[in-house]
């Protein structure tokens, strides 16, 4: 059951009214600070939002992107607040490497995922579009990321994820370096995850955060990164 403020924020988000959502959050922050808005407004609203998305209840890409933008705004405000209060930033859960696979330039889903991971206290290393398999793995080893989240929108591009699977396996990193795959094509082709060798997938950016946390845990039970 959402509180009054949560319902108001969700209603404005459903209208696609980013400015009204930010006004509500700003108003809240005057009394209670931005950092409390993360746990008391944004997280429950995004959870409900993700559930509605999962159930296919009239949500569009714009809704997701506006939600991402609001999350980004709130994160910036939290950082400003921490600097003003001279408070230590909240500890990150770990480093994550994300990017679009070789030849893929559809960055929307990846950028949304990045924002939701950051709001969930992950340190995100976003490699951008058209990333080669070896670049993903090199970066993951450099920053000690146990999960690579790779995105593709088109089927033909998604097949390039097979190269990343091979790169991980050829370096003996299978299991400890988990491969999360996502993008619209994985919803329309449920067998594609097996075809490209993914270790897990999720239906949207919200569910991806949960997925990646599970995959990170799985990795820790399978050993250490070299």
């Amino acid at each position: 059951m959402l509180s009054d403020i949560q319902q108001k924020v969700l209603a404005q988000l459903m209208e696609g009214n980013r400015v009204a959502v930010i006004d509500l959050i700003d108003e809240w922050a005057v009394q209670k600070q931005y950092r409390t808005a993360v746990s008391e407004i944004l997280e429950p609203v995004l959870h409900e939002f993700g559930e509605r998305w999962y159930r296919g209840e009239g949500l569009s890409l714009s809704h997701g992107y506006i939600a991402g933008k609001i999350a980004e705004y709130l994160m910036e405000k939290c950082l400003e607040e921490e600097e003003q209060n001279d408070a230590a930033p909240r500890k990150k859960k770990g480093n994550l490497v994300i990017g679009n696979i070789e030849d893929d330039y559809h960055s929307l889903g990846r950028m949304m995922l990045g924002r939701f991971l950051e709001i969930s206290h992950w340190q995100v290393h976003d490699l951008g579009n058209d990333v080669l398999a070896e670049e993903f793995v090199d970066k993951a080893l450099e920053v000690r990321s146990r999960v690579i989240a790779v995105s593709a929108m088109m089927y033909t591009n998604a097949l390039n994820i097979q190269k990343l699977r091979r790169e991980i396996d050829d370096r003996g990193l299978g299991g400890v370096l988990q491969l999360a795959v996502g993008g619209a094509v994985f919803i329309t082709r449920p067998n594609l995850i097996r075809e490209v060798g993914g270790d897990g997938t999720a239906v949207n950016a919200f569910k991806s955060v949960e997925l990646i946390e599970r995959m990170w845990q799985t990795s820790t039970t399978l050993g250490e990164l070299p």
């Binding site: 992107y65 330039y105 960055s107």
Partner: peptide, 12 residues
Amino acid sequence: MGLDKWLQTFLF
């Protein structure tokens, strides 16, 4: 410019 950039431009 691709869907994502146009959507960002359109929205923001």
